[in-house]
């Protein structure tokens, strides 16, 4: 078992308020790890550390060591652009650019200078859309606006956009919370397919979703990591009473 990301003694502060307390948590390659816990427990904050999305928040300070392939993403000479290429992100609300479907997907590969040949770019776009399970639905309307798609399709477009730059890790922050059950099922099935090629870390407030899609689950509470382990174990016989009480609906 190889780790895609390792974190050691991570502390995160917003001003002088501490949001993450000394968390060390590793993420296995080609597995889906779910982060669960009550609102405000620090799931998104922690997730955002993994591709330095917190850098843009002025008052946010991150301490500790976070490594991808043994490279410290906060210390080593790694460009944030380069990091985000390796660690893509999908957000709660689908946020396609106000551009065509094609350009949404081609955006990253263009920025990173993958190719300047039209036919190669076509190939990259088609491959990403296929992997995101969207190609068949949009192949005849690639020039339509990304925002003209349904919510579930928009979210898959965002996944295609993330995939197009060939990341190693995909971070997802409540990716289905704006979607209906069918669109949710499609994304969940997709997540299971995507882990063949990527490592996926998903924040979800739906315990059932965590149980359905993840291999590993980590339970956060008040900025602390309470328990992590195999998803089947966490949802059937967690070691920690707090974990048990949270997932059975006794608090949160």
């Amino acid at each position: 078992m190889v780790n895609a990301i390792t974190t050691e003694n991570v502390n995160v502060f917003y001003g002088d308020k501490q949001a993450i307390n000394n968390i060390s948590l590793n993420f296995l390659k080609n597995k889906v790890t779910a982060l669960i816990g009550p609102s405000g427990c620090g799931k998104s904050t922690f997730l955002r550390c993994l591709n330095r999305m917190n850098d843009v928040i002025e008052i946010c300070r991150v301490e500790g060591k976070i490594s991808i392939n043994d490279q410290d993403i906060y210390k080593d000479q790694i460009e944030v652009e380069q990091l985000r290429e390796k660690v893509g992100m999908v957000f709660q609300k689908p946020n396609p650019f106000p551009k065509s479907i094609y350009d949404n997907v081609a955006y990253g590969p263009r920025i990173h200078g993958f190719t300047d040949k039209k036919n190669e770019m076509d190939e990259i776009v088609a491959t990403a859309l296929k992997k995101a399970g969207l190609f068949e639905e949009v192949k005849d309307r690639l020039n339509d606006l990304g925002t003209s798609l349904s919510g579930g399709q928009q979210q898959r477009l965002c996944i295609a956009r993330a995939i197009a730059v060939k990341p190693e890790v995909i971070l997802m922050d409540e990716p289905c919370s704006a979607l209906d059950p069918i669109a949710t099922s499609i994304i969940e099935e997709l997540i299971t397919e995507l882990k063949e090629s990527y490592t996926i870390i998903i924040v979800t407030h739906s315990m059932q979703q965590a149980a359905r899609v993840s291999d590993k689950t980590a339970f956060f509470h008040l900025g602390n990591l309470i328990e992590e382990g195999d998803t089947t174990k966490i949802f059937t016989k967690p070691d920690n009473q707090k974990t048990n009480d949270y997932i059975t609906g006794r608090f949160g």
Partner: peptide, 9 residues
């Protein structure tokens, strides 16, 4: 209710 953990057991 989709019971979990000790409830499920």
């Amino acid at each position: 209710r989709q019971p979990m953990a000790d409830d499920l057991r």
